[in-house]
């Protein structure tokens, strides 16, 4: 029974952790929802692979509070994002913007697809060319004579199937 309680407690702890930081919550649920949406788009610069909404770093806490302050003051989502972006640059955005530095990053899927299609096209064309070549090329006299040596003509009397 004791063990069961312990197991249950251990199972419950990640769920509790999910609730997260309750210190900074906006009264208005729609505003809080917006704050979370923004927070999930912003990288925590300390832990770097977490959003500020998921991170426990003190800078992430500060930024969470800052996002909520701005929303409470009536800023739009874009305005809040711009505020943070102006200070921390593209790095803070978990969804990188399209610009000259990130063009290759964004173009990679298209380039990979195009490369694959090109490879398929090349292979098919080569196959078709090879198939076409066999039927069309005429044998020279010398080749014909050599072929006759190896394979008896269809009208020959020899019966090698016997």
């Amino acid at each position: 029974m004791k063990r069961l309680a312990l197991v249950l407690a251990l199972l419950a702890s990640p769920a509790l952790a999910q609730i997260g930081d309750t210190t900074y919550r906006l009264e208005d649920p729609t505003q809080e929802q917006r704050a979370r949406e923004i927070g999930r788009e912003l990288r925590c610069l300390v832990c770097q692979n977490q959003s500020i909404e998921d991170s426990d770093a003190s800078l992430a806490r500060d930024l969470r509070l800052l996002v909520r302050e701005q929303i409470a003051a009536g800023a739009s989502n874009d305005e809040v994002m711009r505020f943070v972006h102006q200070r921390y640059g593209d790095f803070v955005l978990l969804r990188p913007p399209v610009n000259t530095a990130t063009l290759l990053l964004w173009a990679t899927p298209v380039l990979a697809l195009a490369g694959g299609l090109f490879a398929i096209w090349r292979i098919r064309r080569r196959g078709a060319a090879a198939a076409a070549g066999v039927g069309e090329v005429e044998l020279t006299e010398a080749e014909r004579a050599r072929l006759a040596q190896i394979v008896p003509a269809p009208d020959s009397k020899g019966d090698h199937r016997a």
């Binding site: 610069l45 300390v46 003190s58 800078l59 500060d62 930024l63 800052l66 200070r87 921390y88 640059g89």
Partner: peptide
């Protein structure tokens, strides 16, 4: 103390 000026500078540690 609040770390707000640091945020304005883009300081992250």
């Amino acid at each position: 103390q609040p770390g707000r000026v640091a945020i304005d500078w883009g300081v992250y540690g």
